[in-house]
Design a protein around this nucleic acid. Structure first.
Length: 787
RNA sequence: GGGCGGAUAGCUCAGCCGGCUAGAGCGUCUCGUUUACACCGAGAAGGUCGCGGGUUCGAUCCCUGCUCCGCCCACCA
């Protein structure tokens, strides 16, 4: 064996070996209990980042652990077509080439997208393989697979036929850049400093009323002015009519509870077509909706050529100028407020009225609320249950249509006679009148609509497949907290409604990895860390162990590369612990799992380390059950390095020599190999490569850890017979004191001459002989009866 | 406006239901090349556990107020 562990040499070999062995390929027909995880499918928008590496490592730790426990483990991988995100990526790519998708045409655009999926989809799986993930690659899914598309249509049709999906003109978050509507959950709010302009509107029959707005340009679409009910300032104006400047439109002054009397002037211009609040107010009072902004984000006011066609920003200035000319502007002040941006392209959103498809959420939400309230679905950390519940309880209808080139077509057609219907297979004729003249709906579905079906669609739903019966519901979902609303909540709703059961029992919200300075990692800031770099530098095991150690704390973590580096050292330590045994023992010696050892032949230090291993297994079992992987990693690290290498191995080196007493040697061999083998198995879910490589080198070992069981030490290990383990603990303290004294005295570490001590044992935890032997093995002193 | 999380050694973080000299990794200092490992070993230094009150025999851990940092939600005209 080489002096140090080389991940680059070892990893490809084991990846190939696992592939050969079919590790990860689940057998739906086996009689083992099942354990399943649906991988949150990464968007195919580029390479994976450290967040993915962390989240997926946690899943593989669970998968490998359960496999060792005898479960039939199905960890189903896949990728998400991520319509809006991918379209954005491709459009940016085109822009860099000086092209638009319109110039390219639909056909060529589609080809380009397919090529992208091909390349990056493969790259994502390749990255995952580099980390040694034991996914079930045979069942890999893509949200554009034909079977998956069918599941989407079945769900859509059912909701449509039940009236829970409807189409209608409502105010939406419109992204002028993407030229699409997006849902409320995809809005990213950013602070803007704008000018809050006070504008005086003349009132018919004398007088005036002053409103305050940060969007003067939308006044062209005003259809009312609202004041707070009972506001004494405006008591005389309510019920009268404003003549809107620039347009001459006559609009009413009325009262509405949504108006904050303290804000601005206490009077609100109401533009139902371009503001969500105003939309609601308009609905309440039956105001007309006058759209003044087009889908491309320019003013759409042909009757007002001064403004028509201007961008919204230009129009804001121009309208203000025009109002100033009329003397209507009576004040301006800087004002900080939040403006909605598209979370994909970051463009400013334009609320406007548009015909879209919606899902009525309330009926779907009720069972999903109950599932979490009753503990059927559990969040870890628990506090995220409240985040989920708050959202669910205040749920609003979901805008599911998108005006993109990419995505799942809305499966609805309308015939020439006006019959509209949803379908699963595209029909040739209208089911109502038989007309063959059908117009298909031009929109596509929100990506999250398809993602929402992931946990059951991947197993063949709506068909009653063996996989579905066997692996649904899944056991654990490991995901990021920013998609609790976008994804987790919707999976619970659709799972309960369509698959007849919750999609998963436990939801682990993994830690968020921040940059070293506490800011968010992002490509634009250039502070993202590439998992492949980390793998190359420290090995896949180190990256995984790091993920296990920080992944489920549920906290933001500042990325600390040193932490990964420390696990590379740990891998090397394991390697060298193995190397020691291999070089000292030779291949013929029997080990591990050999039940033949007679406990009576074991020495106190043997009993001590066995007891510690047994305790650690118990603690790890509890920690894993609670998803406290950091605790597992910490304990195993400490036991391996501190307990086994620093103390136990140093204690028994003498006993491993050729000239040692054969019985003593046999006991030391059995114990050292058994303990190391146990540690390697315990660590295997975290660090599969190095543990495989070490475990198979131990004398008499199996050719792979695959199929080996999770350790369950017999009860006699922890009994530590006659307090021998306590005695060893005391030796450790004593040795520490002796070393300290020697160093205080300025002795060089190896200095042995005239170093004599006498020791007295306060009880018979250790025999005088064992005490002398252990102390002399660890400190260069001579233990004598009398100084 | 509402809610949540964080503030523990120079750095990144653990510390479950209140009770041991408050821990780890990295870093720092001293010593060391003894055939597992210098990707190492031995020893050591380093913390008023954000600040102020309170409960308790006893609080890093509970209550309360405050100060910073971060996140989420909300119809911030």
């Amino acid at each position: 064996m080489d002096k140090s562990f080389s991940p680059t040499d070892v990893e490809p070999r084991w990846r190939a070996r696992w592939e050969e062995l079919g590790v990860g390929i689940a057998d739906a027909a086996s009689d083992r209990p099942s354990f399943s995880i649906a991988l949150p499918p990464p968007n195919i928008t580029g390479a994976l980042h450290m967040g993915h590496a962390l989240q997926q490592s946690v899943q593989d730790i669970l998968a490998r652990h359960h496999r060792m426990r005898g479960y039939e483990v199905e960890w189903c991988p896949g990728t998400d077509h991520a319509a809006i995100a991918t379209q954005n990526v491709i459009e940016r790519q085109l822009a860099a080439e000086g092209l638009t998708k319109e110039e390219l045409g639909r056909e060529a655009f589609r080809a380009r997208v397919d090529a992208w999926y091909e390349e990056y989809g493969g790259r994502i799986f390749e990255q995952m393989r580099r980390l040694g993930f034991s996914c079930d690659w045979s069942r890999a899914r893509f949200t554009l697979d034909p079977a998956y598309v069918r599941a989407i249509r079945v769900v859509f049709k059912e909701l449509y036929d039940e009236g829970l999906i409807y189409r209608g003109p409502r105010i939406v978050n419109w992204c002028p850049r993407c030229r699409s509507a997006i849902s409320d959950e995809e809005v990213e709010w950013q602070e803007h400093t704008d000018s809050l302009v006070r504008i005086r509107y003349p009132v018919e029959g004398g007088g005036d009323i002053t409103i305050a707005t940060v969007r003067p340009e939308t006044m062209l679409g005003d259809t009312g002015v609202a004041v707070s009910p009972g506001d004494p300032r405006y008591a005389g104006l309510v019920g009268r009519t404003v003549v809107l400047p620039l347009t001459g439109r006559r609009i009413p002054i009325f009262e509405d509870g949504a108006v904050e009397p303290e804000f601005g002037t206490g009077a609100l211009k109401v533009t139902p077509a371009h503001d969500p609040t105003d939309y609601d107010i308009g609905q309440r009072h039956g105001l007309p909706m006058i759209g003044v902004i087009a889908l491309d984000g320019t003013m759409d006011v042909p009757d007002l050529p001064r403004f028509h066609g201007l961008s919204v920003n230009r129009a804001r200035e121009e309208v203000t100028v025009a109002l100033r000319e009329l003397g209507a502007v009576v004040g301006e002040e800087e004002y900080v407020h939040s403006v909605g941006h598209c979370d994909r392209c970051k463009g400013v959103l334009e609320p406007l009225i548009s015909e879209q498809w919606w899902v009525t959420m309330r009926p779907l939400a009720e069972p999903a609320i109950a599932a979490v309230e009753t503990g059927e679905v559990r969040f870890h950390p628990r506090r995220f249950a409240n985040v989920y519940l708050d959202w669910m309880r205040n749920i609003r209808d979901w805008c599911i249509s998108r005006q993109l080139w990419l995505g799942h077509a809305i499966p609805v057609s309308t015939c020439v006679n006006g019959h509209r219907f949803a379908w699963i297979e595209h029909p040739d004729a209208c089911p109502e009148c038989g007309s063959a003249e059908l117009a298909d709906d031009p929109d596509v579905l929100d990506t999250w609509f398809s993602s929402a079906l992931w946990p059951f669609a991947i197993f063949g739903w709506p068909d009653d497949t063996p996989d579905l019966r066997r692996f649904y519901p899944t056991d654990v979902l490991v995901t990021a907290r920013e998609i609790i609303f976008l994804w987790v909540s919707r999976m619970v709703m659709t799972g309960l409604r369509f698959a007849g059961a919750k999609p998963f029992g436990d939801v682990i919200i993994n830690s968020t990895i921040m940059a070293g300075d506490g800011s968010r990692m992002s490509k634009s800031k250039g502070n993202v860390v590439d998992p492949l770099d980390m793998i190359e530098r420290y090995g896949a095991d180190a990256v995984r162990a790091w993920a296990g150690a920080v992944g489920t704390a549920g906290q933001d973590m500042r990325f600390d590369e040193n932490r990964i580096a420390s696990y590379r050292l740990f891998a090397n330590k394991l390697w060298n612990a193995t190397r020691l045994l291999v070089t000292r023992l030779g291949d013929g010696e029997r080990i591990a799992e050999a039940p033949e050892v007679d406990p009576a032949t074991l020495h106190p230090e043997d009993r001590w380390i066995l007891a510690r291993v047994a305790e650690t297994v118990t603690a790890c079992d509890a920690a894993i059950a609670a998803y406290r992987f950091h605790e597992v990693m910490e304990r195993l690290y400490d036991l391996t390095w501190r307990g086994y290498c620093d103390w136990y191995v140093e204690m028994i080196k003498g006993r491993l020599g050729e000239d040692a007493d054969p019985a003593s040697r046999a006991a030391a061999v059995w114990t050292s190999v058994t303990v190391l083998d146990t540690l390697l198995r315990l660590l295997h879910p975290f660090m599969p490569f190095v543990t495989e490589e070490c475990a198979v080198r131990l004398p008499g070992a199996a050719p792979t850890l695959q199929g080996r069981e999770w350790p369950a030490p017999p009860s006699w290990w922890r009994e530590g017979a006659n307090g021998a383990a306590d005695g060893v603990e005391r030796v450790i303290e004593l040795v520490g004191a002796l070393r300290n004294a020697r160093q205080q005295a300025g002795l060089p570490p190896g200095f042995r001459e005239r170093q004599q001590v006498t020791l007295r044992t306060p009880d018979d935890a250790l025999s005088a002989g064992d005490l002398r032997r252990l102390v002399q093995a660890l400190v260069p002193v001579e233990v004598v009866d009398e100084l």
